[in-house]
Amino acid sequence: MGRDVRRNPDKPENTACNSSAGKHESTEGTWKAHGRHMEGTWKKSSVISTKGNLIMKFNNPRHALRWAYETINTPIIKISSVNAMRGPDGAGGVPEGELTPYDRHAQAALIVSLCERALPALHMAYIRVQFGREAGGFNLLARHLAANFGTGLHSRRGIEQIIRAYCGEKIGLREIRKCMACGTLKAAALRNGGYDALDLIHVQTMDILEREMHSRGLLRTADALERA
């Protein structure tokens, strides 16, 4: 019948501020989509001082991207209110050695900007859809998948459903088959072919970002990961 493997919606990856430690942490979680390349478990991110500047260090590019987009989508006022509740004087002061809300947003924007400079348009579209949940990336991804499907007319909505299912939305084969106006076996073949194409984009994207983020000191070293 074909595979129907996607992210486990019951195990979302969330990030949270640890009020006692004064550090931004990411709770352990597993992201699953089509099995091979989207699974990943991480522990904590850390704040490091580099040449007088505080920066967040991450375990891998996926960790950095999830943190960056979550930070960008969180209003500064909301982050500030958390700091105010835990500040030593109740006035919203940030403890020494911790990023301010403005620092967080600046680094998050830096990470997204790095992606825009380093990645081809197709791979950046994937980042926008997979991590940013932005509709603007669907156009390019849908055209790429349609080209991979070969000759014939393919429903744009059906292709978008395949992309959404890959990114973790609860979309079953029946819904994809209905949009594609085809049989179950054909729908399964199209979905699996789409997953394979997206897997390749994912691997290429993470490979590029691994090198770029490592060269800029955004990733934790192997020794630091072992000590965590």
Rank of each mutant, 00 (worst) to 15 (best):
M1H: 07
G2E: 06
R3N: 13
T15N: 12
S20E: 15
G22K: 08
K23T: 15
K23C: 05
H24C: 14
G29D: 06
T30F: 09
A33C: 07
G35E: 11
G35Y: 04
K43P: 10
V47N: 08
V47H: 03
I48S: 07
G52C: 00
G52P: 03
F58G: 10
F58I: 10
N60I: 03
P61I: 04
R62D: 09
H63L: 10
L65K: 03
L65E: 05
L65C: 00
W67T: 03
A68M: 03
E70I: 06
T71P: 00
N73D: 04
I76R: 07
K78M: 11
V82D: 09
A84L: 13
M85T: 14
G87D: 14
D89Y: 07
V94C: 08
L99V: 01
D103L: 04
A106L: 07
Q107Y: 01
A108L: 00
A109M: 02
L110Y: 03
I111Y: 00
V112T: 02
S113R: 09
L114N: 12
P120F: 01
P120D: 05
P120V: 04
M124K: 04
R128I: 01
G132H: 05
E134S: 08
E134L: 07
A135T: 05
A135D: 07
G136H: 03
N139P: 10
N139F: 15
L141Y: 05
A142H: 04
N148R: 14
G158N: 02
I159R: 08
I159A: 10
E160Y: 04
I162C: 12
A165E: 05
E169K: 00
E175F: 03
I176L: 05
R177G: 06
M180W: 08
C182P: 02
L190K: 10
R191W: 01
G194T: 04
D196S: 11
L200Q: 11
Q204K: 14
D207M: 09
E210L: 12
E210V: 03
E212R: 14
E212V: 13
M213D: 07
H214F: 11
A222C: 11
